[in-house]
């Protein structure tokens, strides 16, 4: 069974009195353990597609099944539970709590899941170790470099042992060398843990590292 199965999905946004169709008749299937890059220019709908996959955004028509479960029929609680346990997010601007430490940031997703409280520190430590920044645990985010921040963000994304990581331009704010390290880290997690990876990028070199590259233009996914 594929992890992600989307059929004839459409998404529109109200723009004044009119409607703008951001996604048009999207058909997409992603198997477990795949690494998929979605490329497209600005405004093509790639981030919208990522948000729909991550249940951060709704869709107007079509079907979306995640691991055999219909996302369209889920209520807010069910979607929240799905995000808390199955999906990790990595963003270009890290989206970390800057005044908190690395371990405090990585702990946040565990607060919403079913992980026993007493096991949280152990999982946080494991996640930071896996992303190569265990020594940064007590350090505040504001005191870190961009590469370290992204590693902490990735640790936060994997701490709940998700089956899917959605990364929106994860190397967009990093230099070339650090970008390579981050991509290697993400791909390494895919190889080692079998985490499915969907990366939105406009960088063809980054895209080339993935197993499959999809292009989207004006809301239409090109085959």
């Amino acid at each position: 069974m594929p992890l992600i199965e989307i059929k004839n999905l459409n998404k529109t946004y109200p723009v004044g009195k009119n409607k703008f169709q951001a996604l048009k008749h999207i058909d997409l299937t992603i198997e477990r353990g795949e690494t998929v890059a979605i490329m497209g220019r600005s405004g093509s709908g790639k981030t919208t597609l990522l948000n729909v996959i991550g249940t951060l955004d709704t869709f107007d028509s079509g079907t979306y099944n995640y691991d055999g479960r219909s996302v369209g029929k889920m209520n807010d609680r069910a979607k929240s539970t799905l995000r808390a346990s199955e999906i990790g997010f990595v963003q270009q601007d890290f989206l970390l709590l800057n005044r908190k430490t690395a371990s405090e940031n990585v702990t946040v997703p565990l607060m919403f899941g079913k992980t026993p409280y007493r096991k949280m520190p152990e999982l946080v430590k494991k996640a930071l170790t896996e992303t190569g920044v265990p020594e940064q645990a007590k350090k505040r985010i504001t005191d870190m470099s961009g590469g370290q921040k992204q590693r902490v963000a990735i640790a936060r994304a994997i701490v709940t042992d998700p089956s899917l990581i959605l990364a929106d331009e994860p190397t967009g704010a990093l230099d070339r060398a650090t970008s390579g390290e981050i991509m290697e880290l993400l791909l390494g997690l895919n190889r080692k843990n079998g985490i499915t990876l969907v990366i939105v990028t406009h960088d063809s070199e980054i895209a080339a590292m993935c197993g499959r590259v999809l292009r989207i233009s004006d809301g239409v996914l090109e085959s």
Binding site: V108, P109, F112
Partner: peptide, 9 residues
């Protein structure tokens, strides 16, 4: 952010 990480409304 909390909603993104799995918090319910």
């Amino acid at each position: 952010l909390y909603r993104m990480l799995g918090g319910t409304e």
